[in-house]
Write a protein that binds this DNA or RNA. Sequence first.
DNA 1: GCCTGGCACTCCCTTGTGCCGACTGCTAGC
DNA 2: GCTAGCAGTCGGCACAAGGGAGTGCCAGGC
Lengths: 356, 356
Amino acid sequence: MNDKLELDKRKAFILATVVYEYINTAEPVGSVTLTQKYNLGVSSATIRNEMAELEAGGYLVQPHTSAGRVPSDAGYRTYVDRLMQPETLTKDDARRIRDQFRDASRELSEVVEQTTRLLSGLSGNLAIAIAPSRDSHAFKHVQLIWLSARTSLAIVVTSGGVAAQRVFEWSSDVAADDLTRLSNALNSRFGNRVMEAIGANDVEAVCAELGVTAEIRDAVRSIFATARQTDEPEIAAAGAQNLLDQPEFHDLRKLRAILRIVEEQRTLYDLIADELNADGATAAPDPTPHVRIGHELRADELAECSVVTVPYRFGDRGVGMLAILGPRRMPYGRLIALASGTARSLGDHLSDVEIR
Amino acid sequence: MNDKLELDKRKAFILATVVYEYINTAEPVGSVTLTQKYNLGVSSATIRNEMAELEAGGYLVQPHTSAGRVPSDAGYRTYVDRLMQPETLTKDDARRIRDQFRDASRELSEVVEQTTRLLSGLSGNLAIAIAPSRDSHAFKHVQLIWLSARTSLAIVVTSGGVAAQRVFEWSSDVAADDLTRLSNALNSRFGNRVMEAIGANDVEAVCAELGVTAEIRDAVRSIFATARQTDEPEIAAAGAQNLLDQPEFHDLRKLRAILRIVEEQRTLYDLIADELNADGATAAPDPTPHVRIGHELRADELAECSVVTVPYRFGDRGVGMLAILGPRRMPYGRLIALASGTARSLGDHLSDVEIR
DNA sequence: GCCTGGCACTCCCTTGTGCCGACTGCTAGC
DNA sequence: GCTAGCAGTCGGCACAAGGGAGTGCCAGGC
């Protein structure tokens, strides 16, 4: 690849047109097609020369000698960064997004799941969403509920809703009053604190002050740990069957490889969350969609895929991630508009739902 | 099809062997293969005559003139009902099921989802699970929690855990005491009643007795309605990518048709829940797995599929459903054992988790 | 110096053909 | 009632031929 190749106006136009045409037709683009379909003012021979140079520059590749040209990763990259027209949401898409969130669930994890379904339906690709880490939620309430002398229910509520709930069975009788006092103490101590900032030590300190049994102390510690749930990020994906429509996935092996990645929550998370962690949960996320193309994804199975990611905010600090995964040959402009539009609406919806 | 054809011992053995062989190889079975691989004591010509009669009787079909035989729906049906050996769980499968439930989640919907993953992994097919209807849960607790003068959090807990939670914003100030009194009244009135038996009227009656505002009354009514959630049954599916391995689904059109069904929660529910509703939630379910084969599923797209369903119990009355969907050419004995073993373990786990 | 028409060449893909192999049904004989 | 043998059928594979799309290059023109 020759990075020094500057694209003059005509080369840029040809490259843009090849990418555009290939995205729409899935067929390698030849010089004659180009001159016939687009008004270039020069002959196909000239285009051939230009295309040869674009290939030498690393922007295009030829599947085989007598075929047309197909964009390379670098070709797509240039297209996305410099050549394509930014798009805005179509009226119809905007309406569907609005409708979806008007009667969306009020429960965080359900909203996230519904959003992947919406986004996969609109985009015709695979949609993925990561819920904001519970560590960034604000603590709202804990309630230890007396069910019987030997059983209690514990519930922890954060700004995202019920974050943990668990029934405990005690080895000795427990008084309802004690549970209430403990609940009140925990609530007044931790009210509105970020979950991340509530450690096991803090919980134990409160328990110690009230002199509750070791059994109850352990129970409370464990319910707070569950509520933080730092280990398993919540992630949802929908629309894998959309990929079947794409000719690049008619090869079953490729399809399988991709589905395997999607099936593994962990790899899927790693794929999408790069930028989430880079930003850090505290910094305000850059709400611009990011595009990663082919090998930029650093996974051989995804060499023919691209991913559009965009963060969405949950309250003041929480950040989640939306993503669209599809073939490199995806309509970038439209998908970027869809992703950022959906992320915005999702953020708005969540600030409605958030417990303040 | 000729229902009067009685299967003598030899015909039965030949049919069983053809089904068995086809299940294992996915290739039409010819008379010579049969005589060579299995000790039949007669020549291939005799087998040919027998197979011709089995075809006339509707048990076998020929994909084309010069091909071997393949079982028909009726052939599989006879195999499943009368010919095959019942299997028990292998030690290895039993261990994996045990391991899974040992550290499974304690939250109902999560358990259901994890179970589909387990069952799809073990069976190598698509696994589906329907959570027991919340109508059959027992009411355990409602708590109206004062967050601020104008906001409250309402939580309804049933035997299945937190069934509903919602933040309400009031148009006028609300006293914490009023919320507590209302919570107590509702709890003592409804304690342990089946959710199904708690109607909007009952809720309103309690509210009227305490003289709460219309706003609060509506809020309570709505949170109870959400908790019952009769409309949208909870359903999970996992392992669709397993179907890619099966040669019958290498045709992308068929695969698409099936994925479309699985994607639609509603159709998926209808597919599995037949027997759930037939039994009624009150009757103790027959814990024997049911098998439906090909056209018995009453869906053209599933003409080449079979489904194994088995109910599992949740507490005394609640019933959910597990299912395995795969090609007709599935190892029925093994899958039946897996399904019923998993259903049993799931039921046991749930009675641990259930709030009593 | 850049552009263009023309041409030879390359390679894929489709179509057609022939052959092999698998399997059946039938018949005559044991 | 069973069996051996045989003719017939059909799918699938290998192979060759032809068409088509597209390229690179070259010589000539503006």
